[in-house]
Amino acid sequence: MGVVIGLVFGLIGGSAMTSLTYRIPEGLPLMMDRSKCPSCSHPIRARDNVPVFAYLWLRGRCRDCSASIPWRYPLTELAGAAIGVVAALTPVDTLDKFSCGLALLVGLGAAVIDQRTYRIPNALTYPAALLLLVLGIANAWISGRWSPFVLTIGLAVAILVFFVLLRVVSRGGMGLGDAKLAAVLVLGVAAFGIWSTVLAVLASFFAGSVVGVGLILAKRSNLRAQLPFGPFLTVGFVLTTLSVVIFH
Rank of each mutant, 00 (worst) to 15 (best):
28 L>F: 01
149 F>W: 12
120 I>H: 09
7 L>I: 03
3 V>F: 02
212 G>V: 06
221 S>D: 11
55 Y>T: 04
153 I>H: 09
54 A>M: 07
44 I>N: 10
241 T>I: 13
65 C>Y: 07
81 A>T: 07
211 V>N: 04
41 S>V: 01
202 L>A: 14
2 G>L: 11
212 G>W: 00
153 I>Q: 12
145 R>N: 12
131 L>P: 02
8 V>P: 03
167 R>C: 09
153 I>R: 12
190 A>G: 14
224 R>T: 13
8 V>N: 14
64 D>S: 14
29 P>E: 08
21 T>W: 00
193 G>W: 01
227 L>C: 07
133 L>Q: 05
136 G>E: 04
238 V>M: 13
227 L>T: 03
38 P>L: 04
217 L>D: 05
106 V>Y: 10
174 M>G: 08
97 K>Q: 13
1 M>Y: 09
177 G>D: 02
130 L>W: 01
208 G>A: 12
36 K>S: 13
27 G>A: 10
6 G>L: 09
156 A>T: 07
26 E>W: 01
144 G>E: 15
90 T>P: 00
76 T>G: 06
39 S>L: 03
105 L>G: 07
14 G>C: 09
75 L>A: 15
187 L>N: 03
118 Y>K: 14
56 L>S: 08
17 M>L: 14
242 L>G: 08
203 A>G: 01
52 V>P: 01
39 S>T: 09
236 G>H: 06
56 L>V: 15
58 L>Q: 10
